[in-house]
Simulated scan of single mutants.
Amino acid sequence: MSAIVPATCKATAAVIFLHGLGDTGHGWAQALAAIRAPHVKYICPHAPVMPVSLNMNMAMPSWFDIVSLRPDAEEDESGIRRAAESIRELIDEEVKNGIPSHRIVLGGFSQGGALSLYSALTARQKLAGVVALSCWLPLRNSLSQSVVVSNKEISVLQCHGEADPVVPPILGRLTVQTLQTMLNPDNITFRTYPGVPHSACAEEMEDIERFIEEQLPPVNQ
């Protein structure tokens, strides 16, 4: 299931945005509605509920299990791959609805941002861009340039609060460095926001709005 902000005219583009751990798609649907473009449909799916190791095995909405957020932490490889497959199925669904994949931006916050990056890099579908907020690149040691088939030229907007106590900004910087070895570095933008914790700020939402406008301009009907 997803929270959806429909286009206010004929939808010719879509943004699929993935929430963070323990959240649902509703909050991000509201945030995106505030910066919506009339021809864009915004889809904010809800993660399944599962026990999460990081939070003492409490069950909560989560795209995959997280053991720890240390850079050297063990990762839930099968869960990440399974989640990425479900995101690619969502993309295919929108293509069936008449929106070509190259008119779809994938995005997410925290765990959702991590999944959006991994899904875009491993997707066969050519995408318009990725918005990766306050996140990291999962399974980065098993990813290489050869894994990226369709999206070597994809545009990436990566954003991180400099006062993030949950996903340390160093993880964001390491992610950018890895992405620059796999994608065209000219297409990667990394923005940080002084004093911002593990959340989005108004300036960041303006940067996201501008990025979406650039990647998904209106098409002549």
Results as ranks from 00 to 15, higher is better:
residue 73 A to I: 02
residue 207 D to C: 07
residue 189 T to C: 13
residue 21 L to E: 04
residue 114 A to H: 08
residue 208 I to L: 06
residue 117 L to R: 08
residue 43 I to E: 00
residue 168 P to L: 12
residue 145 Q to R: 15
residue 13 A to I: 10
residue 82 R to V: 09
residue 15 V to C: 10
residue 45 P to Q: 07
residue 184 N to Q: 08
residue 27 G to M: 11
residue 147 V to E: 15
residue 63 W to G: 05
residue 203 E to S: 14
residue 120 A to F: 03
residue 126 K to M: 09
residue 84 A to E: 02
residue 207 D to Q: 08
residue 87 I to G: 03
residue 221 Q to L: 15
residue 189 T to Q: 14
residue 107 G to E: 04
residue 82 R to W: 12
residue 67 V to D: 06
residue 169 P to F: 00
residue 129 G to Q: 05
residue 73 A to Y: 06
residue 79 G to R: 08
residue 9 C to S: 09
residue 42 Y to M: 07
residue 51 P to L: 13
residue 118 Y to G: 07
residue 75 E to A: 06
residue 221 Q to A: 12
residue 65 D to L: 04
residue 28 W to H: 07
residue 154 I to E: 03
residue 154 I to P: 06
residue 76 D to T: 02
residue 75 E to W: 05
residue 164 D to I: 11
residue 181 T to K: 14
residue 97 N to L: 13
residue 42 Y to R: 04
residue 48 P to W: 06
residue 171 L to W: 04
residue 46 H to Q: 13
residue 131 V to R: 00
residue 107 G to Y: 08
residue 135 C to K: 00
residue 135 C to E: 00
residue 170 I to F: 01
residue 88 R to A: 12
residue 98 G to E: 11
residue 93 E to H: 09
residue 27 G to K: 00
residue 103 R to P: 07
residue 45 P to A: 12
residue 144 S to K: 10
residue 187 N to W: 00
residue 129 G to S: 12
residue 70 R to N: 11
residue 109 F to G: 10
residue 110 S to M: 09
residue 81 R to S: 01
residue 211 F to M: 04
residue 148 V to P: 12
residue 182 M to V: 07
residue 160 H to D: 00
residue 137 L to R: 09
residue 162 E to Q: 09
residue 106 L to H: 02
residue 99 I to D: 05
residue 139 L to A: 04
residue 187 N to D: 11
residue 38 P to D: 15
residue 146 S to V: 14
residue 169 P to K: 01
residue 39 H to E: 13
residue 39 H to D: 05
residue 185 P to A: 03
residue 220 N to S: 13
residue 101 S to V: 11
residue 51 P to Y: 03
residue 176 V to Q: 14
residue 9 C to Q: 15
residue 122 T to G: 10
residue 63 W to P: 08
residue 168 P to W: 07
residue 154 I to W: 09
residue 122 T to N: 10
residue 141 N to E: 14
residue 190 F to G: 01
residue 157 L to H: 00
residue 1 M to D: 12
residue 48 P to S: 12
residue 30 Q to S: 13
residue 58 M to P: 01
residue 55 N to K: 05
residue 212 I to N: 05
residue 168 P to G: 00
residue 100 P to Y: 03
residue 156 V to T: 07
residue 40 V to N: 04
residue 8 T to V: 09
residue 124 R to Y: 01
residue 174 L to P: 03
residue 109 F to V: 03
residue 141 N to R: 11
residue 17 F to G: 01
residue 162 E to N: 07
residue 120 A to R: 03
residue 195 G to C: 08
residue 49 V to M: 14
residue 57 N to S: 13
residue 34 A to S: 12
residue 31 A to Q: 15
residue 201 C to K: 06
residue 143 L to M: 04
residue 23 D to Y: 03
residue 115 L to C: 03
residue 66 I to P: 01
residue 119 S to M: 02
residue 18 L to R: 10
residue 95 V to A: 08
residue 109 F to L: 14
residue 156 V to Q: 03
residue 81 R to W: 00
residue 135 C to M: 02
residue 74 E to I: 01
residue 150 S to T: 14
residue 168 P to T: 02
residue 17 F to P: 04
residue 96 K to A: 13
residue 114 A to F: 04
residue 100 P to A: 09
residue 92 D to Q: 14
residue 20 G to N: 08
residue 218 P to H: 07
residue 68 S to R: 00
